[in-house]
């Protein structure tokens, strides 16, 4: 099979050059987007720590995510996902109309960087919230 490079036009991000070695397959899709199976993670220095999970089949579907340790330094995945060389979690960031930023720590998207597979994993128990609010730094008065 050819190691093709694919060009994908993503609204707001421009044209991305996607190598097949960076494409993640979601065998069950993503919750709410079950028909979508192929995703890439897009990042740039300027957007750090934000990473975009972008659907290759529908590039206008792009979810802002970040590595959950930015929110909770002691964040832990369930035991079967704890090998950091294999599994990388991304927490989906949602925005309320009020401006409140919510991070989903309860159901991280777990990417297996060896098999290039991903799925949204629900962490059992009540340690993590699906709507963890981020505190906002109050801009200093001028």
């Amino acid at each position: 099979m050819a190691r093709a490079q694919q060009q994908v036009c993503v609204p707001g991000l421009g044209v991305l050059k996607v190598s097949q070695r960076r494409v993640f397959t979601f065998p069950t899709g993503l919750i709410g987007f079950e028909q979508l199976r192929k995703f890439v993670v897009a990042s740039s220095q300027a957007m750090e720590p934000l990473k975009w999970l972008i659907s290759l089949e529908q590039p206008e579907i792009a979810l802002p995510t970040l590595v959950p340790w930015h929110v909770d330094p002691s964040y832990e995945l369930p035991p079967e996902f704890q090998d950091p060389e294999t599994f990388v979690p991304l927490a989906v960031v949602a925005f309320e109309p009020s401006g409140q930023i919510l991070v989903n720590l309860k159901a991280p998207i777990v990417l297996n960087v060896r098999t290039l597979q991903g799925r949204q994993v629900v962490i059992p128990g009540d340690r993590y919230s699906a709507t963890h609010p981020l505190s906002i730094a109050v801009p200093r008065a001028g």
Partner: peptide, 26 residues
């Protein structure tokens, strides 16, 4: 999204996260 997240209080992540990602050209 980028602008709003800039205002949020976030921790620095010490460990390097190795994730095959696609670079966004500036």
């Amino acid at each position: 999204v980028v602008a709003q997240l800039r205002l949020a209080r976030l921790y620095r992540v010490a460990q390097k996260v190795k994730l095959p990602a696609v670079k966004v050209e500036p």
